Amino acid sequence: MARPVTLCTMQWGDLPLEVVCEKAKSFGFDGVELGLPSHLDVRRTDPEYYRNIKATLDKYDLKLFCISNHLIGQAICDNIDQRHKSVLPDYIWGDGDPEGVHRRAAENMIQAAHAAKMLGIDTVAGFTGSSIWQWLYSFPPVTDEMVNEGYADFARRFIPILDEYQKLGVRFALEVHPTEIAFDTYSTRKALEAIDYHPAFGFNYDPSHLGYQGVDYVDFINQFADRIFHVHMKDVYWSDTPKQIGVFGGHSTFGDARRFWNFRSLGRGKIRFEEIIRALNDAGYQGPLSVEWEDSGMDREHGARESCAFVKQVDFQPSAHAFDACFER
């Protein structure tokens, strides 16, 4: 049986949940990945609220496997500034005092684990933020001590969160991504070491964020096979020739044609999805394949529909027996 294909609702946060569910079903999706804070308020503790969400999903015959807390999670370890005010709800931003924002974001991430339990699922995907992303390019020289303190800060802030997740039987899946404490294979290993390979910590695998950096996104699955808790299917295009705006993206906006790379609808970029499916099969991943659709140059309804069909076409299960077994007598 093929893996379920779900739609991440974060990019549809301008629409009510029921409208998104109706559209997702019409596009052919098997389920949704609920994005915070637009489609789920994890501060709610009343069972009726969660029963109503499940009833809405049932109405459209949609499954739920994961909720996503990216925007608020970003504020847990980031150096807080005015950029965060634009993406955080007022109840997290508060008066903007950085430590207060950190604390409220961490509390919300724990609330997300409780919400997952109320919804009957065991995975929360999201971001961590990073106090050392600003030092990506090491000039003026960045010392090992400065980098190590960044990972220590991540551990101090996240281990208490992960301990609560473990108590609840819920897993946190970091989307390895620029601006996070883990953004490539090397930094991912350092993040795991910083938290002593905490069992509640794994990854929301998204190949697009690795591909344009020049990171081997198929090998990433092989390196962390037992830590792939959730999968985002997203495509990206990068140029074969030099462009005006390089791999860092400059101060341009997504979709600018002068950029070296831009996200594309699934099947229209350069990610080798068949190799990803084969690696996920080898890793034994049986969870959903969640479409996180981000193509600045395409109507999102057209893109969501074609992306759902693309994932269902490219996915396949591993063989139950060796092809040459029939040769044996």
Rank of each mutant, 00 (worst) to 15 (best):
T241I: 13
P242V: 13
P242C: 08
K243V: 12
K243R: 15
K243N: 10
Q244E: 15
Q244D: 09
Q244A: 14
I245S: 01
I245A: 00
G246F: 06
G246D: 14
V247P: 02
G249K: 05
G249I: 13
G249S: 09
G250C: 12
G250M: 11
H251V: 08
H251E: 10
H251T: 15
S252E: 14
S252W: 02
S252I: 05
T253Q: 05
T253M: 00
F254N: 12
F254M: 13
F254C: 04
F254Q: 09
G255W: 08
D256G: 06
D256W: 06
A257W: 08
A257K: 09
R258A: 12
R258E: 08
R259C: 12
R259T: 15
R259G: 09
F260T: 14
F260D: 06
F260E: 08
F260L: 10
W261M: 03
W261Y: 13
W261F: 12
W261E: 04
N262F: 03
N262G: 04
N262A: 08
F263C: 01
F263Q: 11
F263T: 13
F263L: 07
R264V: 14
R264A: 14
S265Q: 14
L266F: 02
G267V: 11
G267H: 04
G267C: 06
G269P: 08
K270N: 15
K270P: 02
F273S: 05
E274L: 06
E274S: 11
E274M: 09
E274P: 01
E274A: 07
E275V: 03
E275I: 03
E275D: 15
E275M: 10
I276C: 12
I276P: 01
I277D: 01
I277T: 10
I277F: 02
I277L: 04
A279G: 08
L280E: 06
L280V: 13
L280W: 10
L280D: 09
L280G: 09
D282R: 13
A283P: 03
Y285H: 03
Y285S: 00
Y285A: 04
Q286T: 14
Q286M: 07
Q286G: 06
G287N: 07
G287H: 06
G287W: 02
P288Y: 06
P288V: 13
L289S: 06
L289V: 11
S290P: 08
S290E: 03
V291R: 00
V291A: 00
E292K: 05
E292I: 15
E292Q: 09
E292G: 05
E294R: 06
E294T: 12
E294L: 05
D295S: 10
S296R: 13
G297L: 12
